[in-house]
């Protein structure tokens, strides 16, 4: 997994105009890292790209 640094997270937050202090960025870093790690695993498991065209299970309506 790619590791996110506090400095990089701060740059991203700033780019999004989110005012977070150093202490908040420190607490946020492991939360975001967990989230990105989980998301990366899910992306790898999901055959949704054009290289897997036609292999994805058919979407269903979950409100049936």
């Amino acid at each position: 997994m790619n590791r996110l640094s506090a400095a990089r997270l701060g740059e991203m937050a700033s780019g999004l105009q989110l005012e977070l202090g150093d202490d908040e960025l420190t607490r946020l870093l492991p939360m975001v890292q967990d989230l990105l790690d989980v998301a990366q695993i899910l992306r790898q498991k999901q055959p949704g790209g054009i290289d897997h065209m036609g292999q994805r299970e058919r979407p269903t309506d979950k409100s049936r």
């Binding site: 997270l9 991203m12 989110l18 607490r27 946020l28 939360m31 990105l36 899910l42 992306r43 949704g48």
Partner: peptide
């Protein structure tokens, strides 16, 4: 503050994969 901010760093591809 942190719980509602963390989703800012996800990509559209992450959301679609979910």
């Amino acid at each position: 503050r942190l719980y509602h901010t963390q989703g800012a760093f996800l990509s559209a591809a992450d959301y679609i994969a979910a």
